[in-house]
C-alpha cells in the first residue's frame, strides 16, 4: 500500500482489463518517474475519447459520428453482414481486406455463467437490419471458442428466413483463441472457406 493519491492511481489502473496489481504499480511508477511522459496529453485523450467516441447506431462499431465510416461508405455491399463479438474484431477483419460488406457488433458472446444472455447482446438490432430483405448473407465471425460457438449456433437457428444464407468462418482458426489474434492470412482464408450453416 502507498500513501493517498499514488495508491488511488494504482487502484484505478488495476481496474482496467488485463492489468493486475503488479502491472498497475509498474505503470503508476512509470508515470511518476518518467520526465518525458506527457501526462496532460494522456489525460486529454482519455477525456476526448469519452466525449467524442460512441457506438454506430447501425452496426455498433466505434465511431465519432452517428454512423461509422464503414456504414457510411457507399462502396460497401449492403447484401452481406458480418457478425462479430467486439469492435476490435472489425479492425482485425478489415486488415485482411477480404471482406467488402457491412458489420454487426454484438457486444460480446452468450455466456450464462457471466450473466450474459441473448437479450444482453445486440441481437434484436441485427434482426431489424434483416427485416427488409436487402441482406442475403450473414457471416458469423464470433470467436472460435466455446462461447463464440454457442453464440453462433444460437444465431444460426434464429436467422431462418427466406433468401438468407447464414455462413460461419471456416475452421482452421484455432479453437480457444481470440479472433483479434488471428493473422491476416489465416483470417482471410477462414473467410474464403466459410461454410453454410443455414439457408
Amino acid at each position: 500500500m502507498y500513501e493517498g493519491i499514488v495508491q488511488e492511481l494504482i487502484d484505478e489502473l488495476g481496474r482496467l482489463p488485463g492489468i493486475g496489481p503488479k502491472s498497475a504499480q509498474r505503470i503508476a511508477f512509470h508515470i511518476l518517474q518518467t520526465e518525458a511522459f506527457d501526462v496532460s496529453r494522456l489525460a486529454e485523450v482519455l477525456v476526448e475519447v469519452r466525449e467524442k467516441v460512441r457506438f454506430c447506431e447501425v452496426c455498433g462499431n466505434v465511431t465519432e459520428q452517428e454512423r461509422c465510416a464503414i456504414c457510411r461508405d457507399p462502396r460497401r455491399s449492403a447484401a452481406t453482414i458480418c457478425v462479430v463479438e467486439e469492435a476490435k474484431d472489425v479492425a482485425a477483419i478489415e486488415r485482411t481486406r477480404e471482406f467488402k460488406g457491412l458489420y454487426h457488433v454484438l457486444g460480446g458472446a452468450i455466456s450464462p455463467i457471466d450473466g450474459v444472455g441473448p437479450e444482453d447482446l445486440r441481437i434484436r438490432q441485427l434482426m431489424e437490419r434483416l427485416a427488409d430483405g436487402t441482406v442475403t448473407e450473414v457471416i458469423i465471425a464470433t470467436d472460435p471458442n466455446l462461447e463464440g460457438e454457442a453464440t453462433a449456433s444460437y444465431l444460426s437457428r434464429l436467422l431462418v428466413q427466406p433468401n438468407l444464407r447464414v455462413t460461419r468462418l471456416a475452421s482452421g482458426l484455432p479453437v480457444g483463441g481470440d479472433l483479434e489474434y488471428a493473422d491476416e492470412v489465416t483470417l482471410g482464408r477462414a473467410f474464403e472457406g466459410r461454410r453454410v450453416v443455414q439457408g
Binding site: N145, P174, V175, G176, G177, D178, Y181, A182, D183
Partner: peptide, 11 residues
C-alpha cells in the same frame, strides 16, 4: 492460449 498458434487452448 488466446494466441492462435497455441494448440493448448482447445483442450
Amino acid at each position: 492460449v488466446r494466441r492462435t498458434a497455441s494448440k493448448f487452448g482447445s483442450r
